[in-house]
Each structure stands twice: as structure tokens, then as C-alpha cells.
């Protein structure tokens, strides 16, 4: 499965468009990370726990998008975009979407 955020792949032809595919993941941070984060709020610096958490959930969202693309018979997802929104205090939604296509 080829995943990119450009619209064309040099040297490859799109033979079929299969429409929008999407995946999302809502995650809450756990209490241990919260305590570390409030310490970091005093000292400043990178919140590694959060970086990893968001990275993992973004990968999960992408995984779900890829599953959807496979289900419709695509072999590539083009023009992928990410978006983040906080749905409630302490929880964030990571959302990935793109266009499923068949490349020759």
C-alpha cells in the first residue's frame, strides 16, 4: 500500500479512483503521563509521553484508513491529510483521510 500526500506519483498512472477513505482514533492520556506533564509545565521542555501517545494514535488512524482502502480494492492512498481536534478535556481525536486509487 502506497501512502503519500501528493496527487500524482511520478512514473505511475492512476487507473481507477475509488473515493475518499478515512480513519480516526480518539485517545485519552493516562494519569501517569498527566503527572509528568504537569511537572513539565513548570520546567518546560518536550513532553515525550504525549509525543509518543499522539504518534501512536496517528498511526492507528492511518491503519484504519489503510484497512478501508484495502476493503475497496485500492493499492494506494493519495493526498493524505491529518487533522487533530480535542473533543473533550484530556482526549484528542486524530483523523487521517485521503483518496483511494488503483495504480497500474
Amino acid at each position: 500500500m502506497l501512502i503519500t500526500n501528493i496527487e500524482i506519483i511520478p512514473g505511475k498512472k492512476i487507473t481507477q479512483h475509488l473515493g475518499l477513505v478515512q480513519g480516526s482514533s480518539v485517545r485519552a492520556k493516562h494519569i501517569g503521563r498527566d503527572i509528568m506533564a504537569s511537572l513539565k509545565n513548570i520546567f518546560g521542555g518536550e513532553l515525550k509521553g504525549y509525543t509518543e501517545l499522539l504518534q501512536e494514535s496517528r498511526e492507528e488512524a492511518m491503519g484504519r484508513m489503510v484497512q478501508q482502502a484495502e476493503a475497496v480494492g485500492a493499492n494506494a492512498v493519495l493526498n493524505v491529510r491529518f487533522s487533530t481536534s480535542s473533543v473533550a478535556a484530556g482526549a484528542a481525536e486524530l483523523f487521517a483521510y485521503g483518496t483511494a486509487v488503483v495504480l497500474e
Binding site: 496527487e7 511520478p10 518536550e46 499522539l54
Partner: peptide, 23 residues
């Protein structure tokens, strides 16, 4: 739009970071 003169492989790359400001 990348130049189309020769075939290449393409792959999505990401980088992320969470940084906090100090007190």
C-alpha cells in the same frame, strides 16, 4: 507536483513533537 521526468518511489513521512512552556 513533483517533476515527472523519472520514476521514483514515494512515501509519507511525518515528524511530531509536543513541547511545553515553563512556569
Amino acid at each position: 507536483f513533483p517533476p515527472l521526468d523519472h520514476p521514483v518511489n514515494a512515501e509519507l513521512v511525518t515528524g511530531s513533537v509536543v513541547i511545553s512552556v515553563d512556569y
